[in-house]
Design a binder for these strands. Structure first.
Lengths: 174, 174
DNA sequence: ACGAGATAATCTGCCGCACAGACTATATTG
DNA sequence: CAATATAGTCTGTGCGGCAGATTATCTCGT
């Protein structure tokens, strides 16, 4: 995932093994390829691909807390701390005290951060388009739809209520 | 390989962001989920998911050298060394001198290794099946086919976008 | 109101992994 | 035969994930 995508390999052999695990392998190859391309594009961001994902989450969501960000992106919360330190240092986002819960910090993007993300989003869109250049437009749409459907259908079955917590602060009852 | 996704996080929230990068995100979520499930299954192997992929590659391919294994899986060759050390120690594979090139070692699975992999393959197949439980059988086949097609069609295509990089830099002093 | 427990963020320390570099053994080429 | 290249190993460095402790704050039961 994302992660984990620190791998760097020059001789990328797209050799599909005769294994039953076509899923994991194809997923891995594609994600690695995606990461490589997005890495090239977001090289100026403090943390490359991860940085892009964090910034995107910050901009596109209602001002999230660090914890919700970390949970959503699958990043450890202790990592999120110094990752956001860099972002603040670079003037991409700001930390604000949540007036309701003074333990929490709301992460809001600066104007500069929004601008940077806009450029990145465009570049990433191009990169993804190029990545799927082997597929017909119709096939891409189907793939995207199925992928999204499959990804959203992965219920961790543990914390079902936690999904709600990640959003905005709780206008908790009165 | 799979890289990138070394992330491990209990509270995985399947919250799709309103970002243009649906591809990378869905890919990341799915691969992370896949890794988690396969991790549970291959917990007895020396290196978890990675170990499974290595063993699968060893068994399903013609006896590969360490270098070719590393290249295929996107693992560093220095890592491959001690990873295979463990495998040999556990009696899963053997290192044999290549009679043609005495620098190289051919990695061949032991009978035990084959047996272990057979069990793992079955378990992984079940895990993948469960992972895609949200999709109809027809949809799964299509997804798998498109995925494989997209993964095999990834051309390296190096120098193209290097020029775009310099434009979006935030004040990165560090 | 008070104390017990939970939660957000931070800080510290450990460990695994990627990566660069050196080294040995062998192969290839001039 | 010398020079160079390659397979594998070993060593050291740095980053990132992760567990644990700490501080500040919230929540709940009494």
């Amino acid at each position: 995932m994302v992660e984990g995508v620190t791998t760097r390999d020059p001789a990328g052999l797209p050799a599909p093994p005769a294994s039953p695990s076509t899923l994991g392998w194809s997923l891995g190859v594609l994600l690695r390829e995606w990461s490589d391309r997005v890495e090239k594009v977001s090289r100026d961001l403090p943390h490359g691909v991860r940085g892009y994902q964090v910034l995107a989450a910050v901009v596109h969501d209602a001002p999230p807390t660090q914890a919700s960000l970390a949970a959503r992106l699958g990043i450890d919360r202790t990592v999120m701390t110094y990752l956001l330190d860099k972002f603040v240092e670079c003037g991409l986002v700001e930390r604000r005290q949540d007036p309701v819960d003074r333990r929490a910090r709301r992460i809001v993007p600066t104007g500069h951060g929004r601008g940077v993300l806009a450029d990145l989003d465009a570049a990433v869109a191009r990169a993804e388009d190029e990545l799927l250049s082997g597929l017909a437009p119709e096939e891409r749409r189907v793939l995207l739809a199925l992928l999204e459907h499959a990804a959203s259908g992965t219920a961790p079955d543990e914390d079902r209520c936690a999904a709600v917590a990640g959003t905005i602060g709780p206008p908790r009852h009165a």
